[in-house]
């Protein structure tokens, strides 16, 4: 068994939540630059320039890209030959978030659903844990903003709806969201599974670097088709009109029940923050 100390895990999470919020990934910088070249609207071009400038400034001045530093989502693939020692796995992660959000001057954005009282330390954290072969621990650290999450949706379609039904729902969800989720967005789409798995598939689709094509040819073609449809809407950067409403569509698909065709649309704003680490 390979040992990973809870303390080390806390340090890594602390470091990564800060880095994720201060530094926009290269994949996103590149995607925004590409969008700048495609965009025809003058306002849209200016916005894309400002977003690139914002990313530079955030990194140089060490302040967050966006004030909504998110609810932290962690995807963890834990090798079955790894043993977490000297502490509790979940607590180690939450401590990393607690300390990272304090020391990194990040906004604490988690509260009670009804009283709206802030928990004060940005916990709890949403953790998705998968056990995998091997002796490594792979983590994705994803601070997710509320504005784009609010525009996300899940549909339990009848099987007869087929691809056209799925397409209609995805496009409708993104276009209806308009300016609200801070376009240009990345659209994570989950197809299949069941009610909760479909939503996780959609969120997990957002982890893929924006520059990477889908390794499954069938899905890649579906992504291209959806992106083209979405960008016909005219919503554009920040919803003020333009060609680039979304930068990419990412699909994850798996088999589902014979009675169902679940589809989930998880919208991600242009402050697409995700960090991957392998321990």
């Amino acid at each position: 068994m390979r040992k990973i100390s809870a303390k080390h895990l806390t340090e890594v999470i602390k470091r990564e939540v800060i880095a994720a919020n201060l530094q926009l990934g290269d994949d996103m910088i590149e995607a925004l630059r590409r969008a700048r070249n495609i965009e025809e609207s003058e306002v849209g071009k200016e916005i894309l320039d400002k977003l690139l400038e914002n990313a530079e400034l955030a990194s140089a001045n060490r302040i967050p890209i966006c004030q909504d530093t998110g609810l932290v989502v962690i995807f963890a693939e834990l090798g079955q030959e790894v043993c977490i020692v000297d502490g509790d796995f979940t607590e180690a992660i939450e401590e990393g978030v607690r300390v990272g959000y304090q020391e990194g001057y990040l906004r604490k954005s988690v509260c009670h659903p009804f009283t709206r009282e802030n928990t004060g330390d940005n916990t709890p954290v949403i953790i998705h844990l998968d056990m995998v072969p091997g002796d490594r621990l792979r983590l994705w650290v994803v601070p997710k903003g509320g504005g784009s999450e609010n525009m996300s949706a899940l549909y339990m379609l009848p099987p007869s709806a087929g691809w056209n039904g799925v397409k209609e729902k995805v496009v409708e969800t993104v276009v209806r969201a308009g300016p609200n989720p801070c376009p240009p967005t990345i659209v994570g789409v989950g197809i299949g599974g069941n009610f909760e798995k479909c939503a996780i598939l959609a969120k997990k689709a957002l982890l893929r670097p924006v520059s990477e094509p889908n390794p499954v040819a069938e899905l890649q073609a579906m992504e291209v088709e959806l992106l083209e449809e979405i960008n016909k809407s005219g919503v554009g950067p920040e919803g003020l009109g333009g060609r680039v409403t979304s930068l990419a569509v990412h699909i994850n698909m798996m088999p589902c029940h014979i009675a169902s065709l679940p589809v989930a649309v998880n919208i991600q704003c242009h402050a697409n923050r995700h960090r991957e680490v392998l321990l």
Binding site: I63, Q67, T69, Y105, L106, R107, G147, N180
Partner: peptide, 22 residues
């Protein structure tokens, strides 16, 4: 409509972009 992030030492305010208005 904004909920800024905390001001780091030596700064007036943290990140301070708009939140969704609806």
């Amino acid at each position: 409509y904004v909920g800024p992030s905390p001001a780091p030492p030596g700064r007036i305010i943290g990140a301070a972009g708009p939140t969704t208005s609806y």
